[in-house]
Structure formats: C-alpha cells, structure tokens
Simulated assay, not measured.
Amino acid sequence: MVPKAEFDPQYARYLTDDETGEAPGTIVVDTKRRLLFYVLPNRKMIRYGVAVGDEAYGWSGAATVQRKAEWPDWNPPAEMTARWPHVRKTAGGPGNPLGARALYLFQGNKDTLYRIHGTNEPEKIGRAVSSGCIRMSNIDVIDLYNRVSVGAKVIVK
C-alpha cells in the first residue's frame, strides 16, 4: 500500500526557470495559483506551494521583509479576535499557528500585519484558508527564511 501524501505534490518545492522577471532576492506570491516564488540569479527561481487568505481576508500589494523570527509568538490582531473570540496569544513552538519561521511584511515603516510563515496544518497548503497571511510548510519556510534578507522585496498578487 502506498502511503498518502501530506499535501498535493503539485505544491512541492522545486527549482525552475524564472517566470517573474524580478530581481534576485525578490519574493513573488501568486495567490490564485497558491505559489510563492523566490528569485535566484541566472534566471532561476525556487517555487513553493502555499496556503493563502480566503477571499474575504486576502491581501495584495508590495512590501518588504522588515523582520525575521524563529519559532515566533503569535499575537492575533484585534480584527481576528473580534471575529473569533476563542483565539489567544500563543507562545512560539510546534503547536503555534505561525510555525517554525515568520517573515514580517511592512510597507514603508508600517507593519501590514501580514506574514509569510510556517503552519501547523501542512495539509492546507494549496488552499485559500488563512486570514490573509501566506502559509508554508515548516520545512519550506525554514528554507526560504535561510535565503531571504531583511529588506527583501515582496510582491503579492
């Protein structure tokens, strides 16, 4: 018997030719296709599967990575706790909704409150299920985290 995959293999990480035309070091998120691209030199990119915000909570635009965190604490924004009063601040660790790593997205000096982060629900990669953040499997977000510099450009479309 063949074991069941944790997520759809079409969302597996792999190296491919760059289709973004962006400068190396740029992150591009294609929310419709549920893919994140990290642009490398020599017209290459790494493609990762992601979960994105559902239609009501999606976000798009340009931002920069202004902070990176390992096993971050989760502090749900006021809008989220108003919708779901049961959500509470959670210390970093394996059960935390932000997963193993987080990239904090800013526009200028203003925190967008959106993140690229890991997840404790990898089976949801490829779906529109979050409150706007970009979720990655923990192994993929660790890989991206190790490649990305603070100040990196992020485009979410």
Rank of each mutant, 00 (worst) to 15 (best):
Met80Gln: 12
Val28Phe: 11
Met80Trp: 09
His117Lys: 07
Ala78Met: 12
Val2Met: 13
Asp143Phe: 10
Leu98Phe: 07
Phe37Gln: 04
Lys4Asn: 06
Met136Cys: 04
Gly95Val: 07
Gly58Val: 04
Lys89Leu: 01
Ala51Ile: 05
Leu103Cys: 03
Gly93Lys: 09
Arg127Ala: 05
Asp18Cys: 03
Tyr145Phe: 15
Phe7Pro: 00
Leu35Trp: 11
Pro76Arg: 11
Arg101Cys: 00
Val150Asn: 07
Asn120Tyr: 05
Arg135Lys: 14
Lys4Ser: 04
Ala102Ser: 15
Met80Pro: 00
Arg34Asp: 05
Arg115Asp: 03
Ala51Met: 06
Glu123Pro: 00
Arg67His: 10
Glu19Pro: 03
Val52Glu: 09
Ala12Cys: 06
Pro72Asn: 06
His117Ser: 01
Asp73Cys: 06
Gln10Met: 14
Gly49His: 04
Glu22Phe: 09
Asp30Glu: 14
Ile125Arg: 01
Asp18Arg: 03
Arg33Phe: 00
Arg88Trp: 05
Asp54Ile: 03
Val154His: 07
Val52Trp: 10
Phe106Met: 12
Tyr145Ile: 01
Asn146Gly: 08
Glu70Trp: 09
Glu123Arg: 12
Val141Lys: 06
Gly21Lys: 06
Pro122Thr: 12
Thr31Pro: 00
Tyr38Phe: 15
Ile125Asp: 00
Ala12Lys: 12
Ala62Gly: 12
Phe106Ile: 02
Ala23Ser: 13
Trp84Gly: 00
His86Phe: 10
Leu113Trp: 14
Arg47Pro: 02
Arg101Glu: 08
Asp17Phe: 07
Gly93Asp: 11
Arg47His: 05
Arg115Gly: 00
Thr16His: 05
Ala56Pro: 01
Phe106Asn: 06
Gly99Phe: 04
Arg47Asp: 03
Val129Asn: 02
Leu144Asn: 02
Leu98Thr: 02
Trp59Asp: 03
Arg115Asn: 04
Gly126Trp: 02
Asp54Arg: 15
Pro3Gly: 08
Ala62Thr: 15
Trp84Met: 14
Tyr145Lys: 06
Tyr11Asp: 02
Lys32Pro: 01
Lys153Arg: 15
Asn120Ile: 02
Thr90Glu: 13
Gln10Asn: 10
Pro97Phe: 09
Val150Gly: 01
Val65Thr: 09
Tyr38Pro: 02
Thr31Ser: 12
Val29Gln: 04
Ile27Asn: 01
Tyr57Val: 01
His117Asn: 03
Thr112Val: 07
Lys153His: 12
Leu144Ser: 04
Lys89Glu: 09
Tyr145Glu: 03
Asp73Met: 05
Leu40Gly: 02
Lys32His: 09
Asp111Glu: 13
Val50Thr: 07
Leu113Gln: 15
Gly61Trp: 08
Thr64Lys: 15
Asp8Cys: 04
Asp18Trp: 02
